[in-house]
């Protein structure tokens, strides 16, 4: 079973996120990650959900989610027709003499150092999920104090698949 990326456009009503996550829980669908935020028009929210399931399950998920009153649109973002990104923040414990090692890994990944403390560095990285995984793997020799990922977000390529808002 492969990961599938679902993109939802929903009315920004109170409780909408709980309605959607509740539907996934109740019907036994899996959520690998979920991210949400308002669109250019504040009354709409775009939600990106990464889930797993065979074609039949994905079809059911699409139909059940589309049925929710708040949901304007749902589509699968296929890898070859879409761009995906995720953001991660990693706080690593570093003694002063270890700093340069982490910074050079960050440089290779074009990550940003966004906080420096006497004993820690916090790094921000945006990219596809495999890049993020590779980055975290390279930090193996360091103690990761905290790590926060936004979950995947994405958009379809070009304008052929745009849902226009009114």
């Amino acid at each position: 079973m492969n990961n599938k990326v679902l993109q939802l456009l929903v009315d920004n009503n109170s409780g909408v996120l709980s309605r959607i996550s509740g539907l996934f829980a109740r019907r036994g669908y899996n959520i690998e990650s979920i991210s949400a935020g308002v669109t250019a028009i504040p009354k709409f929210t775009r939600i990106t959900i990464v889930t797993t399931g065979d074609d039949e399950i994905i079809e059911q998920i699409k139909n059940q989610v589309a049925k929710l009153v708040d949901v304007r649109d749902i589509k699968v973002l296929e890898p070859h027709e879409s761009v995906y990104r995720e953001l991660v923040l990693v706080k690593v414990r570093v003694a002063p003499d270890q700093r340069q090692g982490v910074i050079s890994i960050a440089d290779v990944f074009r990550a940003n150092i966004i906080d420096v403390g006497p004993e820690s560095l916090t790094v921000e990285l945006t990219g596809k999920q495999d890049k993020i995984e590779a980055f975290i793997a390279l930090l193996d020799g360091y103690e990761i104090l905290e790590l926060a990922r936004t979950g995947l977000t994405g958009l379809g390529r070009g304008i052929s698949n745009v849902t226009y808002l009114d």
Binding site: E56, E59, Q60, N63, A66, K67
Partner: peptide
């Protein structure tokens, strides 16, 4: 009436 019932 319900698309989600089709093929469920």
């Amino acid at each position: 009436a319900d698309t989600a019932e089709i093929g469920k």
